[in-house]
Amino acid sequence: MADTKLLTDHNHIRDWAAARAGQPALNDPTPGMPESEPVLSFAFGQHAYQDTDEGADRLGGVQPIEWDEWFRIFEERRLALVVSRDVPGQRDEFHELVRRP
């Protein structure tokens, strides 16, 4: 596994996502899992595009949301974002949300 770092600061998380053209999002809950909650994530590429005129904002179970809502859930669940350390010339999209230590 690549060298990683843990992010909890909202500005650092926004900067990390912006550098990869990522948008805050929710993924649909796991099918068949009782009481499963939507999962925080990021939408990259075509999933980051939201056409409000057409209402097509749930591509592949991904729902773009506002940063305020994303961070509200992030704090309620006491999460941290694990990302790869930046390597010059590369923009790795690896990320994982974990419970804070």
Rank of each mutant, 00 (worst) to 15 (best):
I65Y: 07
N11E: 15
H12Y: 04
R72H: 07
D57K: 00
F94R: 03
K5Y: 04
Q50N: 13
D9V: 13
R100S: 15
F44M: 00
I13P: 14
G22V: 01
Q23P: 01
Q63I: 15
D86Q: 06
R91S: 13
Q46E: 09
E54Y: 15
R91V: 10
Q50W: 04
R72F: 03
S36P: 09
P88W: 03
H95N: 00
P29L: 09
E76P: 05
L7F: 03
G61P: 11
Q90T: 10
A17M: 05
I73K: 11
E93H: 09
D15G: 01
H10G: 08
W70P: 04
N27F: 15
A56C: 14
A56M: 12
Q23S: 04
R100M: 14
R20F: 12
Q50V: 15
A19Y: 01
S41G: 14
M33L: 14
A18D: 02
G32H: 06
G61V: 06
M33F: 12
L6T: 13
A43M: 02
A48C: 06
P31I: 08
L40Y: 15
A43V: 01
P88M: 00
G61K: 07
E75L: 11
D92I: 09
P29T: 13
E69A: 11
G61E: 02
F71Y: 12
H10S: 14
E37F: 14
L26N: 07
G55I: 10
D15L: 07
E66Y: 07
H12V: 08
R77Q: 10
P64N: 06
A25M: 05
G55A: 07
V87N: 01
W70E: 02
D3Y: 04
A80Y: 01
D92H: 10
D28H: 09
W16G: 10
D57T: 06
N11I: 15
H10L: 02
V98P: 08
L81A: 08
P34A: 01
D3E: 12
N27V: 10
E66N: 07
Q50H: 12
Q63M: 13
E75A: 11
L59Y: 12
L79D: 05
F74T: 13
W16T: 05
D15S: 06
A56R: 10
L79E: 05
Q90K: 15
I65D: 02
A25H: 03
P31T: 08
I73D: 11
F94M: 05
S41N: 11
T30E: 14
Q90C: 09
D68L: 00
V87Q: 07
H10I: 10
Q63G: 08
E93Q: 12
A17G: 03
A48R: 00
L7D: 02
R91E: 10
R100L: 15
A18L: 04
P31D: 10
L40C: 14
I13W: 04
D53V: 13
D57A: 02
H10M: 03
G55H: 08
F44G: 03
S41Y: 00
D53M: 14
E66T: 05
R85K: 14
W67S: 06
E54Q: 14
P31K: 11
L79V: 07
W16H: 07
P24H: 02
F44A: 03
D86G: 02
F42M: 03
A21M: 04
P34N: 03
